[in-house]
């Protein structure tokens, strides 16, 4: 604090400007979309003691998805298989990709792996997780003396 007062005022003004710029660039959280860090693209929804992870997995058979859950991480792996086509097939365009994938997601809090549930519908995998009892925040009562 002592040093700050000795800074030339122009620095202080720049500092202020920078902070204002940062605030301008701020987007409400939840509106911000990150580019996918791998396949599949995921979204994470949280409430106080629950967690929902959704992943876009179009054209993948539910039996070809492997889910491994530990207390604090989730590994999604599987394969998108290409239909076997005969030699006489001519491709006009090919934009969809195929192959194996593995993705590990670090969970924002500890979960109970036994309570995990997964539903696959319309090419979207939805995994519901419940926060582990030991990890739940505890309220501390403040006593008056």
């Amino acid at each position: 604090m002592y040093r700050r007062f000795r800074m030339p005022s122009v620095w202080r003004e720049l500092d202020q400007l920078q902070r204002e710029m940062n605030r301008l660039m701020e987007v409400p959280f939840g509106m911000r979309s990150f580019s996918p860090l791998g396949f599949p693209a995921i979204n994470i929804w949280t409430s106080e003691d629950k967690l929902i992870i959704t992943a876009e997995l179009p054209g993948i058979n539910a039996d070809d998805i492997d889910l491994n859950i530990t207390a604090d991480s989730l590994t999604l792996s599987g394969e998108r298989k290409q239909e076997q086509m005969g030699d006489e097939v001519k491709y006009h365009r090919q934009e969809r990709s195929y192959g194996k994938f593995t993705r590990t997601i670090q969970l924002p809090f500890m979960v109970d792996p036994d309570k995990a549930q997964a539903v696959f519908k319309n090419g979207i995998l939805e995994i519901s997780l419940v926060r582990a009892e030991v990890d739940k925040p505890k309220k501390i009562a403040v006593k008056a003396r």
Binding site: L37, G38, P40, A41, R80, S97, Y98, G99, F101, T102
Partner: peptide, 14 residues
Amino acid sequence: MTKKEEKAIQVTDQ
């Protein structure tokens, strides 16, 4: 937050 191990498939929405 996440780490990727394989990059066989990539999807970006247009």
